[in-house]
Structure formats: C-alpha cells, structure tokens
Design a protein around this nucleic acid. Structure first.
Lengths: 250, 250
DNA sequence: TTTTCAATGTCGGAT
DNA sequence: ATCCGACGTTGAAAA
C-alpha cells in the first residue's frame, strides 16, 4: 500500500506524486528553498528539509531540529505539484486566507506515499479545566467554608474561571492557571475585580489567583493590589484501562 | 545515504534503528499506541501514525490530519528503542522535565533513516516588531505631531511597546498588536496607564491601542476607559534578492 | 537559569 | 462566519 522512491530524478518525483490520489500522506525529503507569502513574508534559502503533505491538505516543512515546522500551510490548503526547468516544486495556496507557499526541490532524496488509518480518540488529563473540576469538587483545597457559586462567569472584561462565596458571605473571584502565571494574569484578575466593583458599588470582593506555583514577582504584585494567591498542585488520573496501561510502563 | 524499509517485521525494525547512529532523522510509520506522562497524562489508542525522531532528540507523533503533532517530546529527549513480545517500541524520557513518552508499534509499515544537512537562515517579516519599526519610522501613521520617545519601556506591569509625546506635549502610551486584540490587551494597556499615573500623580496620559483591526467589543471597552485605538495595516517587504524571488512566484 | 512575551501561533468551543 | 481563551503551547530574548 505504501510506496517509496529513493533519490529520484525531478521528473520521476513529479511522476510519482502526480499518480497519487488525495487522502494520502506524502513525504518529500531533499534540498529545497521555501517561500511563503500571506500573514507574513518569508524566504528560506537552500537546505535539506522534510515536507509532509497531510490528508486534510495541511503541509508542514520540518528542518533537522526543533518541534516546530519552519514553514507550513493550514488544513484546507489546495496544492499542486509542478515540474519546470528540472525543478520539482510543491505549490500550495489557500484562497480563503490569501496565503501561498512554494517549496522548490533542487534535489529529491526521498519520496514516500503513505496511508494512515486512524480513528482513535486521545485521552488527556491535566488541563486547566481538570484543575477547575477538582476545585469545584473539593473547594477546601483553597480554603474552608468556600462555596462555589458559578463556573465561567462572563464579564465585560472576559470570563472569570470561578465565582464563589466565602465562609463570611463575601464574594470571591477566582482565576485558575495551570502554569505559573505572569503579570498579565494579575491584570486579568484586576480587570474582573474592577468590573465587579463598578457593577456592585460598596460590595467588598476578594480576588484569588490559583496556580501550581506562583512566582515571587506575581505574589508581590497581587499583595500590592490587595489580592490573594493559592498554590494548588492537583493530582491527575486517567480512567481505568488507560490508567492501568500508564501505570505499567512507568 | 538514506535508508528505507517497507513493512518490516518488528525484529527487522528494531535491528534497523539499532544500527543508526545519532544525528540522523528517523521516520517510523505504522499502527501504534502512544502514552505520555509528564506535564499532563495522555493515552492514544491503536491507530496508524507517523513518528519523527529529529537530530536534536525531539520526537513528534503526527496523525493523518492537522498541523499539530498529537504527541511529542522536546529537544534534548533521550530515547531508546526496544523489542519485547514482538512489539517494537520507541521509549523517550527527559529527566530534566520529568517527562516520558512511549510509542508501541503493533505493526511497522515504513521505516526510514535520513540525514538533513541544513544551515540556511530564514528571513521573515510581518512580525509585531516590524509594525513597531514602521511606526517609529513614520509616527504620523498614528497621528500628526507624534514624537516617539522610547521603545520597550519597562514597567512593573509589563513592558510598553512605545512611549511617545503628542503635539500638545502630552505623554502617550502605545500598545501595538499584530493580530486583532482581545479584552486582555485593554487590561494590559490599562495596567500600564494605572502604573504611570501612580508614578506621575496629576499628569495626564493618553493610551492608544494600535492593531490592523480592532474588534467592536474592544473599541467600546477602550472608549469606556478613556483610551483610544488606531487601525494600522503595515506593508511588508523582504530585502532585495528575497523580495525579487517572492515577487516572481506570486 | 528564570522570566517575559510574541507567534504566519493552532485549535476547539461558543455566539 | 467571528470571537475568545487554553495549550503537555513553542521559541527567543532579556534579566
């Protein structure tokens, strides 16, 4: 089912991909240049890279290092292979976003056509929403007597993660971050608080920033503004079978 | 130089990669499961995917669709190939960040070992810094008589993109966004302004949010807080040779 | 090393 | 379609 060419001529490379129908993944490795024009402009001079054309039309160009592609086109891109002046090229265009990318191969080292049949659904835990879930389930991880009133409360300044009432009946606005927050998380919390005070004049409201770790700089900034912080490092588990498998291999 | 195997047995796949030295890119396509434990937990059930091991140790697992890898390990990951119970697996671990990923292949469809020699430097324009450059060069794209005083002014609440004096001698804090800003950009600007007013009591200061497009919601929020906005869509060019090449192919 | 912030961010969900 | 915010964000630059 999978087909491969090693070190083909430009003409052979062109013929190879021209025969391919859609719904297959194409890999091309070789010496090339890459040009992009769209949301930005870029040019990548000659060098060896790996180009991956996926079944949904997205195209990614990888260099020898790094997790990120150096160039790419989003899903839904239309592409066209070309052969002129002994140069095999991959021309990509997405009209809806007015983007264009051209990869010109001076030498193709390797060419493959694969079919990937894949319908599995990934399980993933450890997201911010999982943290919020745990706080809702056990509000006392933040403090005793806390009663969660609402999740994802909309305000004009954005959406508050959690809205609660403390043991003394005071409203509490809680911003949850899965990663160590920066100063802008404080600005975000402050905006919510200012918005709340404007709509509820005279009402005392507390603001809490909750994260696995709160950097010292952020703590002092929070203190300056009269807000609080909690460090909460949740424990996560995948359900049943998946958890068992994970437990085995660690 | 490049080596390939089509539909190898697990043992052949294992032997193939075991012979490979570092500093080569390895591609493995086949039916597999993927498990990850580190910053989160994830499990991906059986399906066909493409695994790329790069020369810097990063590993990315791609599905048939989407620009993003479904799983990955960052550069500097140490990896080990394994063969047990007729299962060929790629085991990755990064001790510094306590992360682990295991890809178990029930069937390998395709295996390749490549060397990518690539030292080219990408030229890229159209970034936020390019927008700032253009505003500094021609401040009247924002308004007449504006004099840019400083770029990247540090404050306790973050760093202001541009600090200027207007035709009437009033200080202006300018926040530049390359993409349509959200409400948090307003919060950010507000934080700068509040910080400035605190340090300069009684001094009138203007705040301007500058972006290619400013959503209506953000405009009203800015107006509420007494700030201004400018829509500025810059034109970009790559220098000389690269620009010529781009001009040709469009 | 840690902190900070932009990104051709991407992606999914809600409106 | 636009808007909005999380991401196992990544990556680079500055402190």
């Amino acid at each position: 089912m999978d087909r491969i060419l090693l070190s083909p001529s430009s003409a052979d490379a062109f013929e190879f991909v021209s025969k391919e129908i859609r719904q297959r993944m194409i890999l091309v490795a070789g010496r090339c240049t890459v040009e992009y024009r769209g949301r930005a402009l870029s040019f990548l001079p000659e060098g060896e890279r790996l180009v991956i054309v996926k079944q949904d039309g997205c195209v990614i160009v990888h260099r020898s290092r790094g997790r990120e592609p150096v160039n790419w086109m989003p899903p839904g891109t239309r592409l066209e292979y070309d052969l002129s002046d002994q140069i095999f090229s991959v021309r990509c265009e997405k009209r809806s976003s007015r983007e264009k990318m051209v990869v010109e191969f001076l030498k193709v080292n390797f060419l493959a056509s694969l079919h990937l049949s894949d319908s599995g659904q990934q399980s993933l835990v450890g997201l911010e929403s999982d943290m919020v879930d745990q706080i809702i389930e056990q509000p006392r991880v933040l403090e005793d007597g806390l009663r969660i009133v609402r999740r994802e409360k909309q305000t004009v300044s954005g959406s508050i993660d959690l809205f609660a009432i403390d043991r003394n009946g005071l409203p509490v606005i809680i911003e949850v971050k899965r990663n160590p927050p920066g100063v802008q998380a404080v600005s975000q919390l402050e905006a919510y608080i200012l918005d709340f005070r404007e709509k509820n004049p005279g009402v005392v409201v507390r603001g809490i920033l909750c994260a696995p770790r709160v950097p010292m700089m952020v703590r002092t900034l929070l203190a300056d503004k009269g807000f609080e912080w909690r460090e909460f490092r949740p424990r996560f588990e995948l359900g049943d079978e998946k958890q068992r498998r994970l437990d085995e291999f660690i």
